[in-house]
Amino acid sequence: MDMGIGQKIRQAGESDREALERLVTEAFMDDPVSTWVFPDTEQRRAMNAPFFGVFIDTAFSEGRIDILEDGSAAALWLQIPAGEPDGDDDTGARMRAATDPDNERTEIIPRLTDAVHPHDRAHEYLLLIAVSPEHQGKGLGRALVAPVLERCDREGIPAYLEASSERSSRLYERLGFAFTQKPIELPDGPQMWPMWREPQGG
């Protein structure tokens, strides 16, 4: 599917893992939340791939990953059913084990986001969008999520995400997302913004 950006969007598979790890490493080097988790630049460059790799694993096993054919951008999605999830989420523990067992910040983010994640209605959950730095600001993120949001509108399904920067929250507002409540406050760190999108049109 070509969304007017000169290249096609396809669903990623396991053969794309190395490219995805390179992409998240570079895409989140200057991200406020990633910088808070790993303040040291060299550690962040080494840890971004295994840290976000937990999300990649989850999307491969439980959701989907849409990627541009040149690998410059990707979006990770999960379909969340209505109702409280069964059992405890071990995402934070896996992130800590995969990166730095001495860094408790690796576990804080999933714990805080889980606490506010709505579960009363089934929805599409955008785990993250990663766009390589040299292509940011060109509309690739918008193009990547547009097909899923169009399907949400056709099928009457809401969508949810947590924005990790004010810049990204403004993009999501233009796509129809709205803030659900007060921001998530990371201890001595930046904010994250839970955002919900009702199906539109029709």
Rank of each mutant, 00 (worst) to 15 (best):
G141S: 06
G176C: 10
H135Q: 12
R174I: 00
H123E: 07
A130D: 13
L144M: 11
S169D: 12
R142G: 14
D57F: 00
P110I: 02
V145C: 10
V54G: 02
H135K: 12
Y172M: 05
R96W: 00
F177G: 10
A130G: 12
A97H: 03
I129T: 15
E134R: 01
Y172T: 05
D90K: 03
L112D: 09
I108H: 01
L126K: 00
T58L: 11
G87K: 03
D57H: 01
G92R: 00
E104I: 08
H135Y: 15
L112Q: 14
G92N: 04
V145M: 13
E124Q: 13
V131W: 15
P118G: 07
T106N: 01
D100C: 12
L126F: 11
A159S: 15
V131D: 11
Y160M: 06
I56Y: 02
R94T: 09
F177T: 08
L126S: 06
D88P: 10
D153M: 08
T58N: 14
A130W: 13
W77V: 08
R94N: 05
P101I: 02
G141H: 13
F52L: 14
D90P: 03
G83T: 04
K138M: 12
V131S: 12
G139L: 08
P147D: 07
N103S: 06
D88I: 09
A82G: 10
T58I: 05
L171I: 15
V116T: 14
P81H: 04
Y125A: 11
G87C: 05
I65A: 12
P133C: 09
I56N: 02
E166D: 13
S169A: 15
Y172C: 04
A143G: 03
A97D: 02
V54I: 14
R105W: 04
D90A: 10
W77A: 06
E155D: 14
M95C: 14
E124G: 10
T91Q: 03
A122R: 11
T58G: 13
M95R: 04
A74K: 00
Q136F: 12
L78S: 13
E155N: 11
R142T: 15
A115Y: 11
T91H: 01
A115C: 07
E124R: 15
H123A: 02
E150M: 12
G137N: 09
R170Q: 15
L144Y: 13
I56C: 01
E107N: 06
E166C: 00
A82W: 04
V54W: 03
G63A: 05
I109S: 05
A59H: 05
T113E: 15
P110F: 09
S165G: 12
R151C: 07
L161V: 02
P158G: 08
E173C: 04
G137R: 10
R154C: 05
P101V: 06
L112N: 07
E150W: 04
L76A: 10
A93W: 00
T106V: 06
R167A: 11
L127T: 08
L128C: 11
A163V: 08
F52Y: 15
A73F: 10
V116C: 13
G92V: 02
E124I: 10
G83S: 06
R174W: 01
G71Y: 01
E173W: 03
A163W: 00
S61G: 06
D114F: 01
D90Q: 10
A93E: 03
A159Q: 05
R111W: 02
F177C: 12
I129M: 12
E134A: 14
S168W: 07
L171S: 09
R174Y: 02
P110M: 08
T113C: 12
I65T: 06
C152G: 08
